[in-house]
Nucleic acid binder design. Structure first.
Length: 465
RNA sequence: GGCCCCGUAGUCUAGCGGCCUAGGACAUUAGCUUCUCAUGCUAAAGACACGAGUCCGAAUCUCGUCGGGGUCACCA
């Protein structure tokens, strides 16, 4: 049985797109193997918790279509799925390690630790806890018993090498002399990430730990923990981080990173996932466009690339445009209607779809292009006041058109251009300006048909009067 | 700085020792279609970081250099 998980920390206001990429792989791997995909909230840092962050994250994950089999919301056999509700568990396991001699209490003050680190750095040494408290554990345990002094539990890093096989990076060897005696249980009784993940991944029977590359350097600590408990290791897979164009880790300083930002502009979840799937992986047949279902079918962890890709919103938009073009008209109509909170006539939207389907890349492109269908232009991108007299005549001619159909409108306009001895392109540009107020618009004849004769004449009148 | 990871065009990638005159996609440029803008089609330009080595043969294997990134907390 394959069980994967993502473990977001509600320290941001929404899901990071990089987390969606990680979630996608976890989800796909679980589904491919008929296993479960779990969402666990790692809210152990009370100082950094963002109000409403967790709820937003859960919402966005669902919105994007990565539905968890087990989560704080739907529950599951290993509940609770929120670390802040599992404090007793971590405490118990931390104490177990102390009893086994694999971990120890430390009562050093933050001030001492800071000072110690500064001294080590001044001597160009790797900052590491000096194990002062380890020298007299009995006394410290005695002190703790007598009065409830602040203390943490630290992992005792054994000497030697940690060797493990990463599913995407191959064999990794790290000498433990480079690893600090990591705090496992903080003085506030909350676990650190390291204790939390290991205990929960074990208890929740996670088989594949697929997470960002940033965790690679701390994986040896986790392995030491698994070994200290005597637990079997899961498969580790560290996937590359998404990057900014300057190659640094994708960050909100330099790029929009919140998933809702993209969704809210009318990027489809399907397109987002499709694009993200292509970050560090490619379809065996070289396809660019494929469904989640197909992805699950052909995806394999072993095909994940090691290099860290740059997240390119331009290609994302292009891909979303492909999704729009391939979408059925009625479906697109509904999407647009709902995207604009049902503010605009669905019938009218429907008529405009064939004109704009190839012209928009995301739903938010619709209104700038089509607003003139819903209301007459209030200003014109090019000033037409000098042409008032001319349009007076145009209006008179257009009034004669009986059958207001795009073909006929088109013919009439061409004839008018000839009659007034104006170049077609110029005439259409001017007409476009009168009708839409813009230099760029959907095809004019069809647009005029949709608007109707009365409205078009009214718009010319509005200019000339 | 220590440790770890990575290195094919501006970007995403294919490539697992000969099929590579290095393929595809986005972006770019040009042309065709055209009432604008798009779409569509066609074409162009553009990459194996560098240096040694192994081999009959290297983008592919080894080593070194350089470059980029990640990480070194009572944050995740």
């Amino acid at each position: 049985m394959v069980r994967t998980r993502i473990a977001p920390s509600p320290t941001g206001k929404d899901v990071h797109v990089g987390s969606v990429a990680t979630a996608l792989i976890n989800y796909a791997w679980a589904k491919k193997n008929k296993g479960q995909f779990i969402v666990r909230i790692e809210d152990t840092d009370r100082t950094r918790i963002v109000e409403g962050g967790e709820a937003q994250m859960l919402k966005t994950l669902k919105r994007v279509g990565l539905v968890a089999d087990e989560s704080p919301e739907v529950g599951g056999p290993y509940a609770p799925y929120r670390q802040s509700e599992r404090l007793d568990i971590y405490k118990k396991y931390a104490e177990e390690l102390v009893t086994k001699g694999k971990a120890y209490y430390c009562i050093c003050t933050p001030e001492r630790l800071t000072k110690m680190r500064e001294e080590q750095q001044a001597k160009k040494q790797v900052p590491k806890y000096d194990r002062l408290c380890l020298t007299d554990q009995k006394k410290i345990i005695q002190q703790i018993k007598e009065k409830d002094i602040h203390r943490v539990v630290r992992l005792l890093i054994p000497e030697g090498q940690i060797k493990f096989n990463d599913a995407v990076r191959g064999e990794i060897i790290i000498d433990t002399k480079n690893i600090d005696d990591q705090v496992l249980l903080k003085s506030d009784g909350f676990p650190t990430y390291h204790l939390g993940v290991v205990v929960d991944d074990y208890l929740m029977k996670i088989t594949h730990v697929i997470r960002g590359e940033e965790w690679l350097p701390s994986t040896p600590k986790h392995i030491i923990l698994y070994q200290a408990f005597g637990w079997e290791l899961p498969v580790f897979a560290h996937i590359s981080l998404l990057r900014n164009p300057d190659k640094s880790k994708l960050s909100k300083r330099k790029n929009p990173v919140w998933t809702s930002y993209y969704l809210d502009q009318g990027i489809f979840p399907e397109a987002l996932l499709n694009y993200l799937a292509l970050m560090g992986w490619s379809h065996p047949e070289g396809k660019d466009i494929f469904s989640l279902e197909e992805y699950i079918k052909v995806f394999d962890i072993k095909d994940i690339q090691k290099t860290a890709p740059v997240f390119d919103p331009v290609k994302l938009e292009w891909m979303n445009g492909v999704y729009i073009r391939e979408m059925k008209n009625e479906e697109l109509r509904i999407k647009i209607y709902e995207f604009y909170q049902k503010k605009y006539s669905e019938d009218l939207i429907e008529k405009t779809i064939p004109l704009i389907k190839e012209r928009i890349k995301k739903l938010s492109d619709y209104l700038p292009l089509c607003e003139f269908f819903f209301k007459a232009p209030e200003k014109y991108e090019v000033d037409l006041t000098s042409k008032k007299d001319f349009f007076e005549k145009v209006k008179a001619e257009l009034e004669k058109v009986i059958d207001w159909k795009s073909m006929i409108i088109g013919d009439s306009l061409v004839n008018l251009a000839k009659k007034f001895e104006i170049k077609n392109s110029q005439f259409f540009a001017d007409m476009r300006m009168v009708i839409t107020g813009k230099k760029i618009s959907p095809p004019l004849n069809e647009s005029m048909e949709i608007l109707g004769k009365e409205e078009c004449l009214k718009r010319i009148y509005q200019l000339t009067s």
